[in-house]
Deep mutational scan, measured.
Amino acid sequence: ENVVSAPMPGKVLRVLVRVGDRVRVGQGLLVLEAMKMENEIPSPRDGVVKRILVKEGEIDDTGQPLIELG
């Protein structure tokens, strides 16, 4: 899985990584606010952040691509 998608609709509060960062499975990639709760979205695998497809403050839909890993 190279693309991390939104598991729920919500607002992107914080992006915790930058392009080029090495990430490990379970590491937080970004924080979504949904139903007044903050949810940290973890990396599904080890890899390198290739692209960040959303910006802080954006509203996303379920299934929307958020981050691409390489």
Rank of each mutant, 00 (worst) to 15 (best):
V15N: 00
L69N: 02
L53P: 03
I59F: 14
P44K: 05
G47T: 03
G47L: 03
G47I: 02
E1I: 14
L29P: 00
L29D: 01
P42V: 14
A34H: 15
P44D: 06
K50M: 13
K50W: 11
V25C: 12
R45H: 09
L16Y: 06
R18D: 08
R51Q: 11
S5V: 15
G28N: 08
V48A: 03
G20L: 04
V48T: 09
M37L: 11
R24D: 05
E58W: 14
N2W: 15
E38R: 10
S43G: 02
S43N: 02
V17L: 02
L32D: 00
V23P: 00
K50Y: 12
E68M: 11
V25R: 14
R45I: 15
G70K: 11
G63C: 11
E68S: 06
P44V: 04
V49E: 01
L32F: 15
E33A: 10
V49W: 00
E40C: 15
M35V: 07
R14W: 06
Q64C: 11
D61T: 13
P9V: 09
A6M: 08
V4I: 12
L32S: 01
K11H: 06
P44H: 09
E1Q: 13
E56I: 14
L30Q: 00
K36I: 06
A34V: 14
R22A: 10
E68W: 11
Q27I: 05
D60Y: 15
E40M: 14
E68F: 10
G28F: 10
E33C: 15
E56P: 11
V17T: 02
L16W: 01
V15K: 00
N2A: 11
L66S: 02
G70A: 14
E68Q: 08
G47C: 07
N39W: 15
R24K: 13
G70M: 14
S43Q: 00
D21H: 05
E40Q: 10
E1N: 13
K50F: 11
V31H: 02
R51H: 09
I52V: 10
R24F: 11
V3H: 08
K36H: 14
E56L: 12
E40H: 09
G57L: 06
T62E: 13
N2V: 14
K50N: 08
I59H: 11
K50H: 10
L30D: 00
V3G: 05
L16S: 02
P42F: 12
E40P: 07
L30S: 00
V25P: 08
P7R: 07
L13Q: 05
L32E: 00
E56N: 08
P7L: 07
L13C: 07
K36T: 11
D46Y: 08
V31T: 05
V12A: 00
P42T: 14
P7I: 07
V54C: 14
R18G: 08
I41Q: 01
E58C: 10
G20A: 04
P44T: 07
L16G: 01
P65V: 10
R18A: 11
E1R: 13
V4N: 03
L16F: 05
P65G: 09
R45P: 01
N39R: 14
V17G: 00
G57T: 05
I52E: 03
K36L: 12
L69M: 06
I67H: 02
E68Y: 11
R14C: 10
P42Q: 13
I67Q: 01
D46Q: 06
Q64S: 11
G57D: 05
Q27D: 09
D21N: 04
G70H: 13
Q64H: 13
I52K: 02
G70P: 02
G20Q: 03
I41V: 10
G26C: 06
R24A: 09
M8A: 08
V49C: 05
L13A: 05
E1D: 13
V49Y: 00
K36R: 12
R51M: 10
Q64I: 10
I59A: 08
E33I: 11
G63Q: 07
V31G: 00
E33F: 14
L29M: 05
I59L: 11
G26H: 05
A6Y: 06
L30W: 02
L13F: 03
V48N: 04
K50L: 14
V49D: 02
E33K: 08
G26T: 03
T62G: 09
P7N: 08
R24N: 08
P9W: 10
D61G: 11
V12M: 03
E58L: 10
E1V: 14
G26K: 03
K11A: 05
V31L: 08
N39D: 04
D21V: 06
R18W: 05
E58S: 10
G26P: 01
V23E: 02
I52P: 02
V48F: 13
E56M: 09
R22G: 06
G70L: 13
E38F: 10
L16C: 11
A34F: 15
L66W: 06
V3D: 04
R18S: 12
M8Q: 07
Q27N: 03
A34K: 06
V3T: 11
P9E: 07
P9F: 09
E68D: 05
P65I: 11
